[in-house]
Design a binder for these strands. Sequence first.
RNA 1: GGCGCGAUAGCAAAGCGGUUAUGCCGCGGCCUGCAAAGCCGUUUAGUCCGGUUCGACUCCGGAUCGCGCCUCCA
Length: 453
Amino acid sequence: MLKIYNTLAREKQTFVPMVAGKVSMYVCGMTVYDFCHLGHARVMVVFDMVSRWLRASGLDVIYVRNITDIDDKIIKRARENGEDISVLTQRFIDAMDEDSALLGVLRPDIEPRATEHVLGMIEMISTLIEKSHAYQAENGDVFYAVNSFQNYGKLSGKSLEDLRAGERVEVDTFKRDPMDFVLWKSVKPNEPSWDSPWGKGRPGWHIECSVMGACHLGKHFDIHGGGQDLQFPHHENEIAQSEAANDCTFVNYWMHNGFVRVDDEKMSKSLGNFFTIREVLKKYDAEVVRFFILRAHYRSPLNYSDKHLDDAKQALSRLYTALRGIDVVAKVDKSAASYEAFKTAIDDDFNTPEALAVLFDLANTLNKSGDLAVAAQLKGLANILGLLARSSEDFMQAGSSSSLDVALIEAQIFARSEAKKAKDFAEADRIRKDLLDQGIILEDNSQGTIWRR
RNA sequence: GGCGCGAUAGCAAAGCGGUUAUGCCGCGGCCUGCAAAGCCGUUUAGUCCGGUUCGACUCCGGAUCGCGCCUCCA
């Protein structure tokens, strides 16, 4: 029985899909004006894991993750680059696809782009105006009237009074209420625009997710996810728009993943303390990064540092080492105690740290017994999390293009084995030390010598 | 200022009202030409103060500290 922590209820709840056996899930994806950083990696990996587990549990999942390809920052960046907006966004969509593929993130079923749904947004805004939930202001912008929606604040736990009293709410003279947010921005010089009943312009940010969610999953669906920072105002506003326009509940379960931090501070574009995925992948294997992400519970903060990545690499190596030299096909035995433990862990609000502990127990059993069924189970369960999909040799010998050539390593190993045969252990040790200094670890076993990085 | 979250051993990170989490690191042993890997053993816990209880790291209250949201952000 899967339980999910529902932000809306502020507690873990038993997950009951609207339609038995089917799950509709929407996750807020990227605004594509730059490379993805580790915070984005976390969202992608976490919800990839969620969708994999739902599927492994026998559910029929439709997973939608949007792409925001029109927005202030995109316009600004394109202008700075002297680049066409569509060229810029496509470039970063391609980069995102590369990054996520390396991280073992499966493609969502649908990846709608905001620019493909402008008509739908115009329709929804019209409906909101008809129902007096929105109005066009004197400057031409269309705003959502926050006080027209009774439940405004139910997701984030904020009240309008508190929000208005907040020191940081900007005063916009065109708004009826300082908390009103923009649905449609009237066109400005040199900006892309679409025709609308309110003149040329472009959509505000929040409306796209309300429209794309409804278009692909229906007006009411099961799960909506995203980073914690989207809880307010983005998701709060999505609820306000959708429920006011459609007169029905928008989403049953809201999931929010925690931040990636650097030195105990949120990693973010505005703080400038972010590491891009591709930057990190120059130094660390992508699977190590995935493992690092899944090693913490998805709602907890996750501190990034080289030390933690090194630690993750060591830990993942232990699993791969257990499987070294064992040629088995991953196969999950659902009658095994390990499966029960694994399932119990993940069913408890996706407790991947505990699920990983099950894998380490299996590795220990495997090391002791060499039991092929245990090896198959280890691979099988890990595969559900998108881990241990490669051969151990692939993992352990994977290196960057700049690292030592394989042929050279093997030549050295041969030279060392000759030295060993001649009982010249000083020379053998010298070669081993020499390789170690270049990051190559040699291990002798009954079959000969194996190496890893 | 308003709202919310967290505080676990050297580091990272879970569960649990009483029984070994797990991984990395350290230490001892086995194994090895020596190592490495592995196996066995082992040292380090639960911010502080109260309360509930036969018993609390685990529940309740308070304090302290840290973090997040309230503005674009995954």
